[in-house]
Design a binder for these strands. Structure first.
Length: 300
DNA sequence: TGATTCCTGTCC
DNA sequence: GGACAGGAATCA
């Protein structure tokens, strides 16, 4: 599932093919992914459109066009893929192909999604990338409340500390909350907590400043390394050129429940928090804070 | 704050 | 044949 490093890799790989390129013809094969615009109108609007820039905020990919056309705001959710190819399947040959756009310079831009969760919104040009006043097209509710990008300068340890202050929800759940910080999903939240040696069930508000700083640093180094490896291909993810990422074999926690921790050898455990699985090392990631650790008798 | 929904391929 | 995977929206 594309999280920040995967979307960033898609952005970079697509940019080399699309920036300055023109969409000659746009065909909507399965309008399910389009929000707030009819398929025929969409196709007409973007026939001949020239791509100006590719951006990203959190897990959203932004395709900006010349001539004041609204940008595409794309969320690939779990199995969505946006990529370029020399050839495209004929309509009907691939039931999961949603969009194909012929490029003026040759080749195709394709949107494919097995589970039909991916969405494309239209982001009207305007101050700050289209505020609420842009209005013409509906935007995802989550976009309007999106927190600072997990790799951006706005996300500082102090900001993370404020976001966690007083929160009783497990830190794992807070890391997944895109309003607090944008870009982490289940894979990288597990990994960040493993790196920072923090138990996923710890209440966010119980983290001490030093622990939050550790978590912040873990998030940064983790995401940067994952981007260097072109993201994690666990099952479905492919980059903008159709290639898998190389970070999967470097995962330390996610998907490794029952296997030995690569730091201490203990068996990794898994529990459910807020409807998500959380995999962690019961020895490296203690529930109590280190140093002033207090064992309380467990009820139940 | 937690369950449910959307989807379908994969795994047991 | 059923549980499970999961991001985000939506409900209770």
């Amino acid at each position: 599932m594309p999280e920040l490093p995967e979307v960033e890799t898609i952005r970079r790989t697509l940019a080399t093919h699309l920036v300055g390129e023109r969409l000659e013809r746009v065909e909507v094969l399965h309008p399910h992914f389009l929000v707030g615009v009819a398929a025929d109108r969409f196709a007409r609007l973007y026939a001949g459109a020239r791509v100006e820039e590719l951006g990203r905020r959190g897990k959203y990919l932004i395709v900006r066009f010349a001539a004041g056309l609204p940008a595409w705001l794309v969320h690939l959710r779990m199995t969505g893929r946006l990529y370029v190819r020399e050839t495209a399947p004929e309509p009907g040959d691939d039931p999961h192909l949603h969009l194909r756009a012929r490029l003026a310079g040759g080749g195709w831009l394709l949107l494919r999604d097995v589970r039909k969760f991916a969405r494309l919104y239209l982001l009207a040009a305007g101050p700050a990338g289209g505020g609420a006043e842009a209005g013409a097209f509906p935007l995802p509710p989550g976009w309007l409340r999106l927190g600072p990008d997990a790799l951006g300068d706005e996300l500082t340890p102090a900001r993370l500390e404020r976001a966690f202050a007083g929160r009783r929800a497990p830190v794992k759940a807070l890391l997944l909350d895109q309003r607090l910080l944008a870009g982490l999903g289940n894979i990288y939240s597990d990994e960040a907590l493993w790196r920072a040696r923090l138990h996923p069930a710890r209440a966010g508000g119980s983290l001490r400043p030093a622990e939050i700083r550790r978590l912040w640093a873990a998030i940064r180094s983790l995401l940067e390394e994952a981007i260097d490896w072109r993201g994690t291909t666990f099952s479905d993810y492919l980059d903008g050129e159709g290639f898998p990422g190389g970070f999967a074999i470097r995962l330390q926690a996610y998907g490794r429940a029952g296997q030995p921790c690569r730091r201490c050898g203990s068996r990794l455990e898994s529990l459910r928090l807020g409807g998500r699985s959380a995999t962690f090392c019961p020895r490296c990631q203690r529930r109590a804070t280190t140093g002033d650790r207090v064992e309380r008798p467990r009820t139940r």
